[in-house]
Design a protein around this nucleic acid. Structure first.
Length: 781
DNA sequence: GCAAGGTC
């Protein structure tokens, strides 16, 4: 008989076997899954690692049909739990047969308890043996031994808390997703799924809120007064104390008081040292934020790289909330190894030779899960790239190493100088900053902090005033949300976990709700329309509150205050209420979303795409029917915006031209003329001369007042006076003709250049009344 | 086909 233990993952199982077996264990394999066997106190032990959850909730098969089951019905039925990783289930059953006792040894948290219960459920189908729980937070000899010497009882409440989340998330996600997707498909053809979820939707909500703030932003005027001071040729700038002045009169008053002043007084000078502490050790969220901000790598990719670095033994486990090292953390071995990389040698020797010893600047979070992300081994760029074939592998490794080193280095020190300058009675502020001691910044050069110098002057000194400026300006709209900011918002609001935040961001990208351009996120039309309609109908869904409410129910289950069933039914009621709000506003939702989907389709149909509908912001495109053609909105029938088009002639939409009168687009009709959508033919327009300036070559030799204009038509070309004197002149009809910038020295007309195929190009004056006529210059190409 | 959470 054997004592069987289940850990959350293989790596943990091996650690446990190593510690409990005192380095003496045997690795066996069942169904390709490692089982570690060893002896302890005369007993046989078997430890295996699962792979996170091995079961998952789903609806019974008869509810799989999206069209056959009204989505709302999903809220009234109970999902069932099914095994998703059969090979692990097999190993659990196999080990249960030989077990005299089972110890659940997954991570010490809510999901870990739940994963243990999955193993428990499968094992209990096979054998009735005592099932215990080993609780540990680190893989130290002492903690592991204690955890397995005195295992406790499994915590059903904790495990059921996770179960509550699983059921409520599935119900809400499935019902909402099916409903929105199917409703939109009634009006617009799309194979895409429009998903809604308790984490992904608030995540999109953050991007939407920022975008909305940008779109609704109204810039405000302000004035700013600055002065350039001259201290013995050293020029520095100060800003008037009033800062941003919203009223022009006020700024003008100040200017009037100091106009023409040539000297200023150094009224006050303060110098203080400011130290900048190194960053806390890296936890997952902080790591993802920095990788995005410094390296421009998406959270999803960063986590994937960190996972590979971890599996290759280069860095530690990448999923942790902790940003504090344990008291007995061994920095020395790692530091010695890091010195192998020449980029780190100097920093390492600084750290190990510090008189006060090696000291970490620890953060406040100790989630008792894993140590902060840190390097395990020092490696060169070539080594890392040879081990991990992912773009960005080395820069991510380098970031982790530099962060680790920076954290152990002394604070940087800056000297901050403030000058209060007085021009008459008006106060101006100037600030300077000089790095006195670089400390950790030596190794961590991701954020550059440039020095800003001020001249060496003292209180009571006077300086010259070179110029005083009153600059009119406008307040700037908020900036687009960055991926790093989004991660912060998610973390603060409890949306997702350290390990899932990147997935939620990725889901939104995959659904076409928002996209990343470099570090910044931009909402896409579908995402904006979805959020806007949800904001109108079920605003709670796009805000973090929805997660918080479910989280509170879960917490009550965890605390044993309510049962899982009670929590599920309360939670389901909450979802039903939201679902009712959603269905009540179906029309609005569908109109906006189907319009946005059709707009995307129209935008890719370049030939017929016209532009944005002024009435509804969807797409305008050319519609051709048996009765002719016109420009219509994809939002039809909800939007009936239309424009007529000329009845004949091939139409080409000009992408480079905008109609100054506000036509929706400018079209070429045949090769004959232009037409502005919503305005009409360009030749009837008073703006035509501005839009299509005639090409003139010189003054009219007959009336002397008009200019000779080049007229080109299908069958030929000639010159015609722009005034009504009626003078015309023919031009050679063969070859490609261009009017040159160069002028005829005799008559002042622009020279012409004609190139016939197979012949040399000719440049000449075309003026029949010019004395230069006939003096054609040959030009070889 | 739908969620979010583990882990690979």
């Amino acid at each position: 008989m054997t004592i069987v233990a289940f850990a959350e993952k293989n790596k943990a199982a091996e650690e446990i076997a190593n510690i409990l077996g005192k380095g003496n264990y045997k690795r066996t394999s069942v169904e390709g899954i490692a089982v570690y066997r060893f002896q302890r106190d005369g007993k046989d032990w078997a430890v295996t690692g699962l792979a996170g959850h091995i079961m998952n909730y789903d609806f019974p098969a008869e509810y799989n049909s999206w069209t056959g089951v009204p989505p709302g019905d999903l809220l009234d039925i109970s999902p069932i739990k099914l095994v998703t990783k059969e090979n692990f289930a097999f190993v659990i059953e196999r080990l249960a047969k030989e077990a005299e006792e089972i110890i659940l040894a997954c991570d010490y948290d809510r999901e870990g308890e739940n994963i243990g219960f999955e193993a428990k459920e499968l094992a209990e189908r096979i054998a009735k043996v005592p099932i215990k729980r080993a609780r540990y937070s680190t893989f130290s000899q002492k903690e592991i031994e204690e955890a397995f010497d005195n295992p406790g009882e499994p915590d059903a409440a904790l495990a059921m808390a996770a179960e509550t989340r699983q059921i409520l998330d599935l119900k809400m996600g499935a019902a909402f997703t099916r409903y929105v997707t199917l409703s939109v498909r009634e009006k617009a053809f799309t194979k895409e799924i429009l998903s809604i979820g308790p984490c992904q939707t608030p995540t999109c909500g953050f991007v939407y809120e920022r975008e909305k703030a940008i779109r609704e932003f109204k810039p405000k005027d302000f004035w700013k007064i600055t002065a350039d001071f001259d201290a013995d040729g050293n020029i520095f700038t100060g800003t008037h104390r009033a800062g941003h002045i919203p009223e022009k009169e006020k700024a003008d008053e100040i200017m009037a008081r100091i106009k023409g002043e040539k000297t200023a007084l150094v009224d006050k000078k303060t110098i203080r040292e400011q130290s900048l502490a190194p960053p806390f050790p890296l936890n997952t969220t902080e790591f993802l934020k920095r990788a995005s901000a410094f390296l421009n790598i998406s959270p999803e990719k960063s986590l994937e790289i960190a996972e590979q670095l971890y599996l290759s033994g280069l860095t530690s486990y990448p999923r942790t909330e902790t940003n504090k090292y344990a008291d007995d953390f061994d920095f020395k071995v790692i530091l010695a190894d890091l010195a192998k990389n020449k980029d780190y040698t100097t920093a390492v020797s600084q750290i190990v030779s510090a008189p006060a010893g090696i000291k970490s600047k620890n953060g406040p979070k100790d989630a008792k899960d894993h140590p902060p992300i840190h390097p395990i081994k020092g490696a060169s760029k070539e080594t890392v790239e040879a081990m991990i074939k992912l773009p960005g592998a080395y820069v991510v490794y380098d970031l982790i190493c530099r962060h680790f080193l920076a954290n152990l280095m002394p604070a940087a020190v800056f000297e901050k100088t403030k000058l209060e300058m007085k021009i008459k009675e008006e106060l101006f502020d100037a600030a300077g900053s000089i790095k006195k001691f670089s400390g950790w910044l030596d190794i961590y050069d991701f954020e550059t902090k440039n020095d800003k110098f001020l001249p060496d002057i003292s209180e009571g000194d006077t300086t010259g005033v070179k110029k005083i400026l009153n600059t009119a300006s406008k307040t700037a709209p908020p900036k687009k949300l960055t991926e790093a900011e989004l991660l912060t918002l998610m973390d603060k609001n409890g949306i997702g976990t350290k390990a899932t935040a990147p997935t939620h961001i990725e889901t939104n990208k995959k659904r076409g709700y928002f996209e990343a351009k470099g570090k910044t996120l931009s909402i896409l039309n579908t995402g904006y329309m979805l959020m806007e309609s949800l904001d109108d109908s079920v605003p709670i869904v796009i805000r973090p509150k929805i997660r918080a409410q479910v989280e509170e129910l879960i917490q009550q289950v965890e605390d044993g205050k309510i049962t899982m069933n009670e929590a599920v039914s309360t939670g389901t009621e909450l979802i039903k209420k939201m679902y009712a709000d959603l269905t009540e506003n179906k029309d609005k939702l569908v109109t906006k979303l189907s319009g946005s989907i059709k707009t995307e389709a129209a935008e890719t149909d370049k030939k017929n795409y016209i532009g944005v509908c002024p009435a509804c912001q969807n797409a305008l495109r050319i519609v051709t029917t048996d009765n002719g053609r016109f420009v219509g909105c994809v939002g039809y029938p909800d939007c009936s915006q239309t424009y007529s088009l000329p009845k004949t002639g091939a139409i080409t939409v000009q992408r480079t031209k905008n109609c100054p009168k506000g036509g929706a687009a400018v079209l070429d009709v045949g090769k004959k003329y232009e037409w502005a959508v919503g305005i009409g033919p360009c030749f009837n327009c008073d703006q035509n001369v501005t839009c299509n300036p005639p090409e003139v070559v010189g003054s009219c030799p007959r009336c002397k007042e008009g200019e000779m204009q080049l007229i080109e038509y299908k069958d030929g070309r000639f010159l015609k006076c722009t005034l009504s004197c009626g003078h015309t002149q023919s031009l050679p009809n063969k070859g490609r003709m261009t009017v040159l910038d160069q002028k005829c020295e005799i008559c002042g007309w622009n020279l012409f250049r004609v190139k016939e195929q197979g012949k040399d190009a000719l440049e000449f004056c075309a003026n029949r009344r010019c004395k230069a006529i006939g003096m054609r210059k040959e030009k070889t190409e």
